[in-house]
């Protein structure tokens, strides 16, 4: 009798522990994609995607071109909304909140989910104004605060030392790599929690690329990062997890190490070893 009670108790304890650890695991998930489908008019670009992303991790998204990587990325800040006749089903949760909820403010979402585009696209303004822009449109007027934030963002994007003497010169005078880091700084200035990078280094030379990769390593301490890349080595270098897409489907997502050495699907192995794509 006594022993039975003991057993029961320990059982309960086990169950409790399980619940707690599951909760911990859940809480640690920054982003959760659930049964997500995406259509351009009648063509389906993303098919039943399910994916979970831990906070402060870097997820590399790889796959042959046209497989829906950019489309997928642009769902997280609802940039696809600017295209007419698109449609989606399913949910994307960031901090458990579905970003497609009717009462969600897209402006808040985009402030929280920063994006850097494939081709660097600074505004035709000064370096300073490029970064101050995001603050100003969000209603911040305090000049000192803006100046402080500009400096901080440029430092965090590892650009400050190179350009601190010409803050008020045109952003177009910067090199391609510097422009791309400026775009990253611009995204950082409004303090997002998630960063979307769509092939951020594809137009850059190896040295500029290395700088961006180094930067991503630093940034993941503070941000959750999704990065699209067509460069296998880059995915292997910068990401903690790698998601392999093909024809709009998520074939598999796992720890980067596993995807590149021992993927569970044959087709993934073929792709990462360069047998097609």
């Amino acid at each position: 009798m006594n022993t039975m009670i003991k057993e029961k108790k320990s059982n309960q304890k086990n169950v409790e522990q399980e619940v707690i650890s599951a909760e911990l695991e859940e809480n640690n998930m920054k982003v959760r994609v659930e049964n997500f489908n995406f259509y351009y008019d009648t063509t389906q670009a993303l098919k039943d995607i399910n994916l979970e992303i831990k906070a402060n991790s870097v997820v590399g998204i790889i796959g042959p071109s046209g497989c829906g990587k950019s489309t997928f990325l642009r769902c997280f800040n609802r940039m696809n909304d600017t295209i007419s006749s698109i449609r989606y089903e399913g949910k994307i949760r960031i901090d458990e909140k579905n970003i497609f909820d009717d009462n969600l403010d897209v402006v808040d979402l985009r402030r929280n989910v920063g994006m850097v585009f494939q081709k660097s696209n600074p505004f035709p303004k000064s370096i300073f104004e490029n970064i101050a822009y995001g603050l100003k449109i969000n209603g911040i007027k305090d000049k000192n605060f803006i100046a402080q934030k500009v400096e901080e963002s440029l430092k965090n994007a590892a650009l400050w030392d190179e350009i601190k003497d010409r803050l008020h010169k045109s952003a177009f005078a910067l090199s391609g790599g510097q422009q791309q880091r400026l775009c990253i700084a611009r995204a950082l200035a409004i303090e997002p929690e998630v960063l979307l990078l769509d092939e951020p280094a594809s137009a850059l030379d190896p040295i500029a690329t290395a700088k961006i990769e180094e930067l991503i390593h630093e940034l993941k301490k503070k941000y959750t990062i999704l990065i699209v890349t067509h460069n296998m080595q880059q995915a292997a270098r910068v990401s903690d997890y790698t998601a392999f897409f093909m024809l709009g489907e998520l074939i598999e997502c796992d720890e980067t190490n596993k995807i590149f050495t021992n993927p569970s699907k044959k087709i993934t192995e073929d792709y990462v070893t360069g047998r097609f794509g």
């Binding site: 800040n77 940039m79 402006v107 585009f117 449109i137 611009r186 409004i190």
Partner: peptide, 27 residues
């Protein structure tokens, strides 16, 4: 005005009007 400016502005949380007035008209 290049579409990439709109995209950058919208992605920072600007509205359409803010984008037109603060980015596109100056450009």
């Amino acid at each position: 005005v290049p579409k990439s400016y709109d995209q950058a502005s919208l992605a920072l949380g600007a509205s359409k009007w803010q984008t037109v007035i603060k980015v596109k008209i100056p450009a």
